[in-house]
Amino acid sequence: MVCALGAAVCFGTATVWQAMAARAAADAGDGGDAALLLRALRQWRYLAGLALDGVGFLLQVAALRSVPIYAVGAALASSLAVTAVVAARLLHVRLSRVEWSAVGVVCAGMAMLGLASGTEGDTGGSTALRWSMLAAAVAVLGLGAVGGRLTGRSRALLLGLGAGLGFGVVEVSVRLIDTLALPDLLTNPAAYALLIGGAAAFLLLTSALQRGSVTTATAGMVIGETVGPAAIGVLCLGDRTREGFAWLAVLGFVVAVAGALLLARFGEAPEPAEEKAAV
């Protein structure tokens, strides 16, 4: 759980630092997306954000090898609470009472999960599940193609949901990779599912945030990356709770995800001009 919460802190803080760097790069001159990215890459905050993303991913992998998927998924969703608090501090974004309450709700949900979570399941996962994850990763790409043709909230929701499903494929695939030895790794469908699912999720989320509602896209992502993987972990991989604490784990999961959904606008740190409007 320490690794899972550490990953949430890394991802949440990285979002704010990268947003600060992107704004500074935009103020430094004109140009397309490529020019903006090059200017952002010259700023320490953007590079530090990328480094934090890398550390967060390593912590996520370590957590997935130690605790149930449902706990890790809820912890990753709680990165929105970290983003909200860091944005309030560094970007001077004013949080409403409801949003501060949501931060508290997320913390309460994670505390309940921490008390109730057992160790990761001892079921290795079947060959069929590995191929299913690969098929799901490819399906995420197809979902992105369909969502890209839509407009408005439906576009943002579908692309955000697809991104969440892609991140969910990554979560499950980590558990299905039992060795890093090259002969076995290269023949494991879960390894390709992890790469394709992660890349597809990043592309879909980027597209959703560029031309759609941040709140809608992030809400779809939170649902996609928590509910499905949690169910697979319990039903297929043997994830369990501490004896007699199943009810607390379910309650903590629901509370943490609900709190994250209330903070969905922080899927991308708000612009300074939006601060007062968002309160």
Rank of each mutant, 00 (worst) to 15 (best):
A71Q: 07
E243Y: 01
V103R: 07
S154M: 09
A156H: 11
D178H: 14
Q210Y: 14
A136G: 08
A51M: 13
Q43M: 05
D53L: 14
G104S: 03
I69V: 15
A139H: 14
R242I: 03
L176R: 10
G54Y: 06
G166F: 08
G166Q: 01
W44N: 03
R97Y: 10
G144N: 04
R155N: 04
G12W: 04
A28S: 13
A21E: 02
L90Y: 06
D33F: 10
T13F: 03
L76R: 00
A74S: 12
R153I: 06
G267K: 04
L185H: 01
A128L: 13
V86K: 04
A84V: 10
A75F: 09
W131K: 15
I196Q: 01
R153M: 06
V2Y: 13
K276Y: 12
L47P: 02
V106S: 01
F202I: 14
A208N: 11
R94M: 07
V169M: 02
A19I: 01
G12F: 05
A19S: 09
D239F: 03
S173T: 12
A217W: 02
L158N: 04
G104Y: 04
P229V: 10
R153S: 10
C10I: 07
A246S: 15
R242V: 11
A34C: 10
G142P: 06
A145R: 09
T13K: 00
A22H: 06
R153V: 09
W131N: 08
A74T: 08
A14N: 02
T206W: 15
A48L: 15
G259M: 11
I177Q: 00
C10T: 13
A136C: 11
A190C: 02
S78Y: 09
A217Q: 01
R153Q: 09
A74E: 06
L237G: 01
F266N: 01
V227W: 07
V140N: 03
V106Q: 05
R240Q: 14
E243A: 09
G147F: 07
L141W: 06
G152D: 04
A19D: 10
L205F: 14
L182I: 08
A256V: 12
L113P: 01
A156R: 10
T83K: 03
R155E: 01
F167E: 04
A190T: 00
F57E: 12
W100C: 07
L159K: 03
R45P: 08
T119Q: 13
R39P: 10
A201P: 07
V9C: 13
S101G: 14
A102I: 07
N188T: 01
D33V: 15
A108M: 12
P229A: 05
R39V: 15
H92V: 11
A25V: 11
A87R: 00
L195K: 00
A156T: 05
L90H: 03
P272V: 05
M20F: 08
